[in-house]
Amino acid sequence: MNEVDGLVSRILEREKRAIARGLTWVERDSEDGKALVRALFPLAGKAHIVGITGAPGVGKSTLVNSLTLELRRRGARVGILAVDPSSPFSGGAILGDRIRMQESVMDDGVFMRSLASRGHLGGLSRATFGAVTLMDAAGFDVILIETVGAGQSEVEIMQLAHSTMVVLAPGLGDDIQAIKAGILEIGQIFVVNKADRDGADHTARAIRGMLTLGMQHLDWFPPIVKTVAEHGEGLGELIGSLEKHREYLSQSGELALIRDGQTAHVIQLAMEDWVDREFRRVKAGAGWDALRQQVASGARDAAEVALEMLRSLTEGDNNGS
């Protein structure tokens, strides 16, 4: 565990190479990577975690770039995680989000990492939670998570981010199509990007109409912000909305609930890892063939065998931490 402790202290000093290496460990989901996330979790919880989602081509990366520049002007340190899809055929990926983030990433107050989804559905990668925890502990004030170009099902970001922005652009397909149920419900802020184009007002009105239909009962009514990310227009208003939402989360107690949920998640992950590891050990052990045959033949119930296995494991050496 010494290597983990060493990396933890370097990450807390915001050493770039240590952050980069830590993220690699987390992505590999190795024992060290898991231990790192567990060690850093208690030190996290201060950053504002912001999700950016929306269909491909609406300008998410460009928006992240100009949002980062504006946040830096206000003195915030910014961590960026950009998720791109892995090929289902080769497992490889082309991670191209840096192309549109050139201006903002050359700054010591900014750290940007591209993540491949590695077969994980839902718009994020399996490692995203650990990566956010690491960046949070490293002291980044705002963490921007750009999801893969989302359609209607990538709602996972909502469980991880404090504030989720749904980005749309005028003239990209049918309005109703763009703001169908899933994506409409996850947005706490709606951004109509490329607002210098025809139809921006129409798109904004369509969103407002849909929101008004479904959300009268909510304490937080999602603002709709028009931006031209390429020229930095509307970014001040967008950051204002983000700050207001953070304030709302804090006052309503939702921020604490999110942290509670994440704490439960960390414990659950640790438990799953432990069970997984122990199960593999049992399968490699002497009694496995007999056990398997008893269950296959119906002589014993699978749940009963599983429970017995768990009991014997907790009695034995239980340094599963």
């Binding site: 892995s86 090929s87 055929f89 080769s90 497992g91 490889g92 990926a93 082309i94 991670l95 191209g96 840096r98 192309i99 050139q102 591209s114 491949a116």
Partner: peptide, 16 residues
């Protein structure tokens, strides 16, 4: 090159 490496199962960061 980026596509060939991706098709070989690698993760390729491309910066333009």
């Amino acid at each position: 090159i980026a596509r060939a490496l991706r098709d070989a199962g690698m993760e390729v960061v491309y910066t333009g």
